[in-house]
Amino acid sequence: MSATTTTTKLLERVKDLKQIPTIPAVLAPLLRYLEQPVEDLDIQKVTDVIAQDKALAAQCLRMANSPLFGRFQKIDSLRTAILGLGFQRVSDIAMSCGVLNLTPKDTGGIDPVVFWEHSLGCALVCRHFARTISYPDPRKAYLAGLLHDLGIVVNLWSFPEEFRRVFERARSQRIPLHEAEQAVLGFTHCDSGSLLAENWDLSADLHAVVSLHHCSYESSEHAPLIAVVELADLLCRMSGLNYGYLENRQVNVLEQPGFAVLLQKFPALRDFDWARLTFELDSYMDEVHGLVHAIYRK
């Protein structure tokens, strides 16, 4: 059986099993709202949507009280959260809490806490990096960072045994997860994530991030957003916001495809202080760890 046939068959299996997690009820309308211009957003509607899911509302409050979201006064209700943090941040928080509930119980050897620490950490680094280089939509960068590894969720649901082998191989050889996926499964979480992105009807730019962040994407019209995620993801994997193991390799950010893509749009990146961004990742680690534990081990 050729590699292409294997891939096609495995991807067929994803479709047939109907095990792709459905988009959580609360997140679908939130995602739709987030695509609208800010001036069209209805704060009351969002509050109502989040309030329908009591567990989610509680998780949102926990996260809203974190310094990671820039609030230093106690927030005790969704209303206070929206008044204090603004609609957009509360939406980001609700999305973060919502996706955290997506992983199955049997996670094939990958600790779901570690996985979501990476995703939430990547989201925060994407937002911070986007702001630092004056990328026009830091919120989108946050969402893209949060959702970029959705394909891993599919792999955990649809191929738990195979994914256990993938993860063991990646961890023992200390290689990037997508390389181990390619070797064991014949496809990566970009391929399986693309199916989920389609199923969830994600916007074209988020779909592109999920499908292409480990691929050749320079010609994509969404290349700058993918580049932000590619670089933030890489820095997280080389630091304490990894998947529970450190890849044993040497990386020069300036040699990554994402750097070239972003440099075309943001010439100031030529003198960017990558060391400082790396040190700033430290600020997120403890808080991300605490938040994910609090939410996941509820």
Binding site: L235, M238, G240, L246, E247, N248, V251, N252, V253, R276
Partner: peptide
């Protein structure tokens, strides 16, 4: 960090260190 000090050395990321 050597930011702003030298153009000759390149920053590289190693596992958990720079």
């Amino acid at each position: 960090s050597l930011y702003g000090v030298t153009e000759e050395f390149r920053l590289v990321h190693l596992p958990g260190a720079t």
